[in-house]
Design a protein around this nucleic acid. Structure first.
Length: 277
DNA sequence: CGCCAGGCTTCTA
DNA sequence: TAGAAGCATGGC
């Protein structure tokens, strides 16, 4: 992939392993959406960004070299060779179809706090409604910048009463959100430092939050804390693992289990969607 | 109306 | 200690 800095933004050419639709709509992030003109816009890391896809390139609109290197290169995990990972995972024939289908997916390195909240809200819920709750959360408690809103930090929510969260219509998950906010803001769950902890330690600490079980903890680790070997198992993944893998991924896939997980999730979910229609 | 949605907590045997 | 019920809300 070639990186070219121009006035209109950063062009990533030969982006065979970076497809916006697959990356931004595969259920790992909830604040990206497609614009009327086909571009993708969203808010991450306290910034608003629009991207465009052409046949073999991605454009980060209006981004200069400094912002690219400081923010987006890491957010889109552009330092990782997804071609190599994809080929390694494809060595197992049971993984190959999902690897081909999800080829352009990249695992986003999102803010841990936003990731924790997002996946607390995801439990027993569907993706459109998760997006709606997060949108209301940002509009009500985030900071406004020119018509869009940042994700509110933990300290902002930690001081809220349960009643103040009623406007989110998050249901029983609201009190989980509050407990997470209090534990993160209070230092019991020090998300940033947990990046360097062992996976077991990080997972155990995340699960001290009320409403955070194995699945939400693993999603937070994979999408927020940079643990690429984390392997969140939701109903879809459990079904595939039981059906095709005898319950567990092959040894060779374990170092990139998180990427394999996202390929499998995207593939299975889309196949089910097509079968239904 | 009933069922389901990127689960988790709580109750029960 | 496994397994089922209950949980808020909204789309279908």
């Amino acid at each position: 992939m070639r990186t070219i800095f121009q006035k209109d933004g950063v062009h990533l050419e030969n982006a065979e392993y970076f497809e916006l639709a697959a990356t931004l709509d595969c259920g790992q992030a909830f604040r990206w959406g497609r614009d009327a003109d086909g571009g993708w816009s969203g808010v991450a890391l306290g910034r608003r960004l629009t991207l465009r896809q052409t046949e073999n390139s991605v454009l980060l609109c209006g981004v200069d070299e400094e912002e690219y290197r400081a923010v987006w290169q890491d957010y889109f995990d552009l330092g990782r060779d997804y071609g190599a990972v994809n080929r390694a995972l494809s060595a197992d024939p049971r993984l190959r179809p999902a690897c081909e289908y999800g080829r352009g997916i990249r695992i986003l390195r999102q803010e841990p706090w936003e990731t924790l909240c997002s996946f607390i809200l995801s439990q027993n819920n569907n993706i459109p409604r998760i997006k709606g709750i997060i949108d209301r959360l940002c509009r009500r408690f985030g900071e406004e910048h020119d018509g869009w809103f940042t994700f509110p930090d933990a300290g902002r929510l930690a001081g809220c009463s349960p009643q103040e969260l009623d406007c989110l219509r998050a249901g029983f998950r609201a009190r989980y959100l509050l407990d997470a906010a209090q534990k993160v803001a209070g230092g019991d769950v020090p998300l940033e430092s947990m990046r360097t902890w062992s996976p077991d330690q990080a997972r155990q600490r995340l699960m001290t939050v009320h409403g955070v079980g194995p699945k939400v903890a693993d999603c937070t680790m994979l999408f927020g804390l940079g643990f690429i070997e984390a392997f969140p198992q939701d109903v879809w993944i459990r079904r595939v693992m039981a059906r095709d893998f005898g319950g567990a991924l092959p040894e060779s896939a374990l170092p990139y289990a998180g990427i394999a997980q996202q390929y499998l999730f995207y593939y299975e979910r889309d196949r089910a969607g097509e079968a239904r229609t």
